[in-house]
Structures are given as C-alpha cells and as structure tokens.
Write a protein that binds this DNA or RNA. Structure first.
Length: 134
DNA sequence: GCCAACGTTGGC
DNA sequence: GCCAACGTTGGC
C-alpha cells in the first residue's frame, strides 16, 4: 500500500466540507506530475489531507475509494480524478512549521517541492506525521 | 501583496 | 531543442 498527501485550499474545498460530503472526487489537478501520482493511487491507499494557504497544516486522513478515471469536469483525456473518503481527523493538525522543523521529515515533498498538489509519501513520513498529530 | 519556485508555451 | 517569457501556486 502506498501513502499520499493532497493539498486543498480550505476556501475552495475544506476538510470540514469533505467530511460533510462523506466522499468526493478529487478534481482540478492540472499538473502532469500530480496527475501521474493520481494514476498510481490504488483503492485503499491512505492519503493525508493538507490545507494550503489558510492553515498550512495536515488536518486529516482520507483513503482512496475509487482509482483514477476520466475527470468528469473536462473532456480532455489528459486529466483524471480519484474518489476519496474521509477516514479520521487528526487530534492535532500538523502544521508546515512543525513538519519543516522535524528531522525525519526534512525530505518530504511538501517541503522540497512546495507547489506540487499531489505527492507520494514514504511510509515512515506518513507514520511520523500521524505521530505528530496525535 | 510580494516573491520564489517551477511548469508551460512559443519563438527562433 | 533551447531558452526567455509568462502564468500559477503557495509561503511569508
């Protein structure tokens, strides 16, 4: 199983809204690298949900409930979405500040490549973030 | 609101 | 195929 991190601006789509919806398709990815990551997601993979801009923190865990398929918001076959469902809210959001300051999370994509909106995480990184959030 | 990082586009 | 110009994202 793989681990991922996705970003969303709370203004656009927040963790709260996601929980209310119970399930969503992850659209709006218009970057090839992020798209490739979406395509590699497998049903059951765990995904950290990060609030960018406002909050700048990991707020919860989601999981992949449907693997990549054509983005319903466009007819351009380049773009895909996956379906995600919320699993659990972190007791304590893990801020970017904390992640940056953490020795074990130095190389996490979030820090290294700030603009990427869908990225893979190593198991250790995923576990570490959960640890910081509990 | 500014700026750095980075991806994409288009001219040559 | 290179590179400058431009647009977008996201942190500060």
């Amino acid at each position: 199983m793989q681990h991922w991190l996705v970003k969303s601006e709370p203004v656009k789509y927040s963790w709260e809204k996601f929980n209310k919806d119970g399930r969503t398709f992850w659209d709006g990815v218009r970057n090839y690298q992020a798209r490739n990551n979406l395509r590699e997601m497998k049903e059951g993979d765990l995904v950290l949900f990060y609030h960018s801009n406002d909050g700048k923190e990991v707020v919860g865990i989601a999981k992949v409930v449907k693997e990549a398929y054509q983005d319903p918001t466009t007819t351009d076959p380049n773009w895909v979405v996956v379906d995600l469902a919320p699993v659990e809210t972190l007791k304590k959001p893990v801020t970017l500040e904390v992640i940056k300051a953490d020795e074990q999370l130095k190389d996490v994509g979030l820090v290294r490549q700030g603009r990427l909106s869908v990225m893979g995480l190593k198991r250790e990184e995923f576990d570490r973030i959960l640890e910081l959030g509990s």
